[in-house]
Design a protein around this nucleic acid. Structure first.
Length: 572
RNA sequence: CGGGAUGUAGCGCAGCUGGCUAGCGCACCUGCUUUGGGAGCAGGGGGUCGGUGGUUCGAAUCCACUCAUCCCGACCA
């Protein structure tokens, strides 16, 4: 491909809106342009990279027995009403009305649609298992889209759905998909880690996320250096607490703490460590009931765990008016004593003696609070986030390590959540009706491309992994005004394309430095530099983008050398 | 949703205490020179100053509303 007939609008200056490396570089390298918040044009170069990701994914899905489909992006409300998600998915679901006032949503995921196909067409155990997938544009109306393709509202996703006769078979399907995912991310050249994850909006029994390790990642993951345990913090178990220290209970005493609301403020004001506080939070559950949640002052509530334990559909911190109503005080001065609502507490609260908490009276806290005497929790659970210094809950042998990660894939064992709601059933060998057991598996296509850049770039630009590079080789004639250089470059382009490489021939009438910088920015893994000096000796220069290594190669040995180099790059 | 900020040429920005023809760098076009790490000189094109309304002799500049974008927060008890 000749660059003068192609379209790679590179830019020198960094657009002010882009913060992270992949976002900046995708704009600068002429891959994407923004149209609206979280909505992007994919320019030719960007599309080539995305297509490469797709292709890797497609091949591995097919290898795992998946069958490709293509479902509508507009989904009628009725399907989502069947599973209840029309109501519960919230504002992330973009809802649209057609001219007849019929309600639709722009699909953020397709469990309902895929299950609808299967319930209509699959009747017998003989038709199972079945794995269907698609690669398609999704829309999620994110609160705050950011980081370009990393968290866009409109994005490309591969979503696969598997349908099974029973849990055992579903487990096998899950395993097969898990392996396929490992193969995909390996081929994409990513450093990644599979971690246990919360099932969130999708639901189901268990799930793993595939995380690309990168400091700019939005998720925090923990892993144990001593065993194989790895988890998203949203899900990570806190080790069960040790024996409780007994201490003689002191009388409960009110102390004035004017304008001191946060734990930090009160802790400094009273000169008591935050770990001696009971943090008292009032949550509104499913928009009706208020529940009091207690954790130690230096701990954070994990709302994913809380939601699961309360079996809640929605969960939010109660509004100040609601807090006032149940406690008689403003947020910041609430304590569990004498509250009439349900109290759930973290395990760590059980061991606390003579704690500090709000007095349920504005401007006051109480000290000497003891569970049993002063309040009683309905139950104790693991309700908090793990934090640095916590031991691995699995093996108890080492402290957890914390990393940042970008979620590029997520696999779920769904059980019968959707098939039951939508009555997707089959007849077993005995002619008895059974509910289909499902799995669902997603990969963010654009996110994989962005993550690859995030993980592989330098000050000069992108360094594409061989398998994703929009073009594998750039041919750079240094002076196209000289016919012998231009002709040699054209010939090399032709021959390398014939040999099966994707080649971008920068035939623009530009200066050498300009072309070098552009090529480094775009990130072609290999540059073939055609210049005066080398050509006199029948040589061209190879530059490896990743290592910066340069070597002179005889023209007749070029293909052989490229074969070797490509093999090394493809393997790394 | 709460807080903060910003909208001036394709991109990055200046101008903004009301006052001349709205400017600078990059990019773009023409010509000459140049040609191994984002060239030099000369000439040139490109703007409803986000939108609407107001104040004024006069508005990019002041006021109101509105739209868009970005940042931070949404764990405060």
């Amino acid at each position: 491909m000749r660059l003068t007939r192609y379209f790679i609008p590179t830019v020198k200056e960094v657009p002010s809106e882009a913060e992270c490396a992949s976002h900046q570089l995708m704009i600068r390298a002429g891959m994407i342009r923004k149209v609206a918040a979280g909505v992007y044009d994919l320019l030719p170069l960007g599309l080539r990279a995305v297509r490469n990701v797709e292709q890797v994914v497609r091949e591995e899905m097919n290898r795992a027995g998946g069958l490709e489909t293509f479902l509508p992006s507009m989904i009628p409300a009725e399907l989502w009403e069947e599973t209840g998600r029309w109501q519960f998915y919230g504002k992330e679901l973009l809802r649209i009305k057609d001219r007849h006032d019929h309600e639709f949503c722009y699909g953020p995921t397709h469990e309902e649609v895929m299950t609808d196909i299967v319930r209509r067409e699959v009747k017998s155990y003989k038709q199972l298992p079945l794995t269907l997938y698609q690669i398609q544009t999704k829309f999620r109306d994110e609160i705050r889209p950011r980081f370009g393709m990393m968290r866009a509202r409109e994005f490309m996703m591969k979503d696969a759905y598997s349908f099974h006769t029973d849990e055992d078979d579903a487990a096998k399907g899950y395993e097969r998909m898990f392996k396929a995912y490992e193969a995909v991310f390996k081929r994409a050249g990513l450093k990644f880690r599979a971690v246990e994850a919360d099932t969130g909006n999708i639901g189901g029994n268990s799930s793993h996320e595939f995380m690309v390790l990168a400091d700019t990642g939005e998720d925090t993951i923990v892993s144990c250096p001593a065993c194989s345990y790895a988890s998203n913090v949203e899900k990570a178990d806190v080790p069960s607490p040790g024996p409780y220290a007994a201490a003689a209970p002191e009388p409960m005493t009110e102390v004035a703490t004017p304008d001191q609301r946060t734990i930090d403020e009160v802790s400094a004001f009273l000169k008591r460590p935050s770990a001696s506080f009971i943090k008292t939070l009032i949550y509104t559950v499913d928009d009706k009931e208020q529940v009091c949640v207690l954790v130690r002052g230096d701990h954070e509530v994990n709302e994913h765990k809380l939601k699961r334990i309360l079996d809640a559909t929605t969960l939010e911190l109660a509004a100040p008016e609601a807090v006032l109503k149940v406690s008689g005080a403003q947020p910041g001065f609430v304590g569990p004593q004498a509250l009439k609502i349900r109290i759930v507490a973290d395990h760590a609260v059980r061991g606390m003696a003579n704690a500090v908490t709000g007095a349920n009276k504005d401007g006051y806290h109480v000290v000497g609070v003891n569970e049993g005497r002063d309040f009683k929790a309905a139950a104790h659970h693991d309700l908090r986030n793990v934090k640095p210094g916590d031991r691995c809950a699995r093996c108890q042998k080492a402290d957890l390590e914390f990393h940042k990660g970008i979620e590029v894939g997520h696999v779920f064992r769904l059980g019968t959540k959707y098939s039951k709601a939508m009555r997707a059933v089959y007849l077993d060998k005995n002619g008895k009706e059974q509910i289909i057991v499902m799995g669902t598996y997603g990969i963010g296509i654009g996110r994989v491309a962005a993550a690859a850049i995030e993980q592989s770039h330098d000050d000069n630009g992108i360094i594409w992994p061989w398998g994703l590079a929009p073009f594998q080789i750039a041919v750079l004639p240094l002076n196209v005004a000289k016919p012998d250089i231009a002709e040699a470059a054209a010939k090399i382009e032709e021959e390398l394309e014939a040999a099966g490489y994707t080649v971008l021939h920068d035939d623009r009438d530009e200066r050498a430095g300009f072309k070098f910088n552009d090529a480094d920015l775009v990130g072609y893994p290999i540059q073939v530099i055609v210049g005066d000096k080398g050509l006199k000796n029948g040589e061209v220069e190879l530059k490896i983008r990743k290592t910066g290594e340069r070597l002179n190669v005889k023209l007749d040995g070029l293909k052989e050398k490229l074969r070797e180099t490509a093999a090394v790059l493809a393997a790394s």
